[in-house]
Design a protein around this nucleic acid. Structure first.
Ligand SMILES: [Mn+2]
Ligand SMILES: [Mn+2]
Ligand SMILES: [Zn+2]
Ligand SMILES: [Zn+2]
Lengths: 151, 151
DNA sequence: AATGAAAATGATAATTGTTTTCATATAGAT
DNA sequence: ATCTATATGAAAACAATTATCATTTTCATT
């Protein structure tokens, strides 16, 4: 692994090394808008380098999550799914709409000011009332996507 | 199983029968404020009737969820947890605060009018914008409980 | 460029939570 | 009391994830 890239330092500061498999996985996550399962990612890695083991994919995703570079989701189909926390388009924090029928996942990030305000208020309230310090929150909206409503 | 109870009809309408194990499990869920794992529930059932199998506990919880009597949660420790949807104290829909350190789970149900209003608005917005029909939503607040903040 | 210690990897086995299977037992309508 | 659909328990199967350990790779130091 010769040439550096922007995340080299991130890894270094975390006491981790940059390897080609890790870079491949980051690239894969970068290049999709989907919420890939570990198996999905493994298959894609395998196309580039068939000698890579599934274990390494698990370990890398775990690392990325700990570094705050990736988000892990458990939508309810029994397998973890991952997404870059900060992607190329700067898409940051967002929620998810999960179709209970076809399992499609839609990102929902266009929050209204009202929604943003409210979260801040809730944060304050929970700290006061329950002495609970929120570091993040996750919301899943379950329902029916357009297609599935007409079946 | 002789005497009827209030949920007898609920079962009947669902084409399900009332059995002593099912009643035991409902009682267990009724008598706690915790979010019990399947294993937790199995242990308690086992105290009352050691011949009950774990499979039946799984099956019963599944049934209760399908009937809308229980809620299943996956908080992130890899095991499902259950809670009665409508309990004796009439506690209904609520969110959860999950301490990332000690894994304590706190119920959070005292929503402000503002919060309730906003959810309705969001529901409408999502239907309009994504043509997505929400049937329910789940929010997990992750953070540090009072105790764990001072460690 | 060669060296060496720390970190990463892959193959395999082990673990864990959950589901399936199937023969037997039970609920509850008749 | 009888009968049939439903529920059950034991065991095996399953699927996702994690642990183990010998080998390879990274990268700071020579
Ligand atoms: Mn997303
Ligand atoms: Mn709860
Ligand atoms: Zn759908
Ligand atoms: Zn805590």
């Amino acid at each position: 692994m010769k040439n550096k890239c922007w995340w080299h330092d991130k890894f270094y500061n975390f006491g981790a090394r940059m390897t080609s498999t890790r870079r491949t996985i980051i690239d894969i996550l970068h290049s999709t808008r989907e919420h890939l399962s570990v198996e999905d990612i493994f298959k894609k890695v395998h196309e580039m380098n068939p000698s890579t083991g599934l274990t390494t994919v698990y370990r890398t995703l775990d690392l990325l999550e700990q570094m705050g570079m990736a988000q892990k989701y458990i939508f309810g189909d029994g397998k973890a799914r991952y997404e870059l926390a900060i992607n190329r388009k700067g898409k940051g924090y967002h929620h998810h709409l999960v179709c209970v029928k076809c399992k499609t996942i839609i990102d929902y990030s266009d929050f209204t000011n009202n929604e943003i305000e409210l979260f801040k208020a809730t944060k304050t309230k929970l700290l006061k009332k329950y002495n609970f310090k929120i570091v993040n929150h996750v919301t899943y909206f379950y329902g029916l996507c357009g297609k599935c409503q007409n079946l």
